[in-house]
């Protein structure tokens, strides 16, 4: 059955699945963040949420997890968009001068370099609640009972909060040795975990299935980042010291490329092992398999730039 799954994975057209969803998610996000008075803050929010070339990996994973259990795409879209909003909020704040002090993000100037530090803080502060508001006001109540919506809200809040991504960012800033795994899991694993879990929650998955999605999503989130670090190191554009220092908490920087490649392989195996538990859902699990291989192989380019 492992080989059958492998077959599914290779036959499944992830590129079409992904690009179709990106178009729909981008369209929803465009409508969810209109420009109103006071325009400046909406423009700052849109700048980051609608950044060109965004891969929309969290929303796509959320939709795929929801569809795995027979949930409707319509049930998942509002949460999928919310994931992108809270993710953008976290990234805007991570880039601030008092944090990572990054001047660019996704190949564009970072939010605060365009709109100012004050607007960037406020744009983040507004995107978090907008995400929650979007879920509660747009999720069709005939498709998703309110009790499930509450679990989704709690899940997203936990993921971005003081024991989740905020903890990862804090530990990354603090420095200190031997925390690379923990920091990576918090900074990059949480979003993957949360995305997969929310999809399952919306579709009414069982608790043991949610736990499985949790481990799967976390592994894929970290895997994606580890491979990013490896690709960046291999492309070997020499980085200035400043930037190197900030990238201290990557597997490549701490253990070197070879060990990072081993970690990536372990993560790929772990993610797929979790998916074996969903075999009874047949080919609907194919998108989740293909994310794992895509994270490693990057077989096609999604979006307009990486």
């Amino acid at each position: 059955s492992v080989s059958a799954n492998h077959l599914n994975s290779t036959q499944f057209d992830l590129k079409t699945y992904w690009t179709t969803l990106i178009a729909e998610i981008d369209n929803n996000l465009d409508q969810a963040v209109p420009i109103k008075y006071p325009e400046q803050i909406y423009e700052a929010m849109r700048y980051s949420v609608l950044a060109k070339g965004a891969k929309r990996a969290p929303p796509v994973m959320c939709v795929a997890a929801c569809e795995l259990f027979g949930g409707s795409r319509l049930a998942a879209f509002p949460t999928a968009c919310a994931l992108e909003m809270v993710h953008a909020a976290s990234l805007i704040h991570d880039d601030l001068p008092c944090m990572d002090d990054d001047l660019s993000r996704r190949g564009q100037p970072s939010n605060h370099t365009v709109y100012g530090v004050d607007m960037a803080i406020l744009a983040g502060d507004a995107l978090f609640p907008l995400g929650f508001q979007h879920i509660v006001s747009h999720t069709p109540s005939d498709l998703v009972p309110e009790a499930r919506i509450l679990r989704v809200i709690a899940e997203i809040a936990r993921a971005v909060g003081s024991t989740g991504m905020a903890a990862g960012q804090f530990l990354d800033l603090e420095g200190g040795a031997n925390q690379v795994r923990f920091v990576q899991e918090k900074k990059y694993g949480e979003m993957g975990e949360c995305s997969a879990v929310c999809g399952g929650l919306l579709a009414g998955a069982e608790d043991d299935e949610i736990r499985r999605l949790r481990r799967y999503g976390r592994a894929v989130g970290v895997l994606y980042q580890v491979v990013n670090d490896i690709l960046e190191a291999k492309s070997e554009i020499p980085e200035d010291e400043e930037k190197k220092k900030k990238k201290g908490k990557s597997y490549v920087a701490v253990y070197g490329i070879e060990r990072a490649a081993e970690v990536a392989e372990e993560l790929r195996e772990r993610a797929k092992m979790e998916l074996h538990g969903f075999e009874k859902y047949g080919e609907k699990v194919a998108p989740l398999y293909s994310f794992v291989d895509y994270a490693v192989d990057r077989g096609f380019s999604v979006g307009e730039s990486s």
Partner: peptide, 11 residues
């Protein structure tokens, strides 16, 4: 970060 965390935790 503490502000962001309080915001999220409220929900």
């Amino acid at each position: 970060l503490a502000g962001d965390a309080l915001l999220a935790f409220a929900f």
